[in-house]
């Protein structure tokens, strides 16, 4: 049984259709990377799954429950977490407050969850009271992922987690992603320059011009010369 099923989804902004019927499946415990050129509809797909955009056709199911058209504050309660590509932190709030916001829908004590997140991202524990707006890009990405993990989700959706990061920072981020996955979480990643991401993915698929055009295991996609030339910047 798959965790997330996207079935023939059509979606876009206003009158402009971006996705023309996309299928997708995420299985429990796997990492799936979606690659594709700029403007292919990767972020649109993420936003549609999460309920920020409402699809005009098709269906989305999470753990066999229909979530098509559900608002984000409902989706988040079901165990999906989403880290947008940009503006994924609350800059004028402290690190701790950012993490607390991640668990907004929960009641009660958050200390245990916070300590679990800081085990994954130890740098954060030293900077509790720093306003996130004053932090570096890499640290912000940690805060953003930490915030998403506060809810203890089943599926973590990451939109270009390594974009705009220096190579060594990107490597750290992917190392963390792998660690998160080892704890049993499924992860859906969208990437434009996706070699690092595909390397640790179970599966990958290619999205181009609003349609899914290819799907295979991570290593196979990396080995595929056509895809390498077209979407991974060649060798």
């Amino acid at each position: 049984m798959s965790l997330l099923t996207v079935d023939q989804i059509v979606s876009g902004y206003g009158d402009m259709e971006v996705l023309h019927g996309v299928d997708l499946r995420v299985d429990p415990g796997e990492i799936l990377t979606i690659i594709g050129p700029n403007g292919a509809g990767k972020s649109t797909l993420m936003k549609t799954i999460f309920g920020i955009l409402t699809p005009t056709a098709g269906a989305i199911a999470f753990q066999d429950q229909d979530i098509t058209g559900l608002s984000p504050d409902r989706v988040v309660r079901l165990g999906l977490a989403y880290v947008p590509q940009v503006e994924n932190v609350f800059p004028s709030m402290t690190v701790r407050e950012n993490l607390e916001m991640g668990a907004f829908v929960l009641r009660g004590d958050l200390r245990e969850r916070i300590s679990r997140v800081t085990e994954l991202f130890p740098v954060l524990s030293k900077r509790w009271k720093t306003h996130v707006g004053n932090m570096s890009g890499g640290e912000r990405q940690m805060v953003a992922m930490g915030r998403a993990l506060m809810l203890d989700p089943q599926l973590l959706m990451l939109d270009e987690p390594s974009a705009a990061l220096a190579p060594n920072l990107a490597a750290t981020v992917f190392e963390r992603i792998e660690a998160i996955n080892e704890s049993g979480l499924s992860i859906l990643i969208v990437e434009q320059n996706a070699k690092d991401s595909l390397r640790l993915s179970d599966r990958g698929c290619v999205l181009a011009a609003g349609l899914k055009c290819f799907e295979d295991t991570g290593p196979n996609i990396l080995a595929n010369e056509d895809i390498g030339r077209l979407y991974l910047g060649g060798e």
């Binding site: 504050d73 503006e87 407050e97 907004f104 829908v105």
Partner: peptide, 22 residues
Amino acid sequence: KTGKAMRATSDNPSLAQVTGIN
């Protein structure tokens, strides 16, 4: 909690929605 959620919404309304703030 509501006060923090107000600050969060003012900071970044779309992210506030993503975290489940109504």
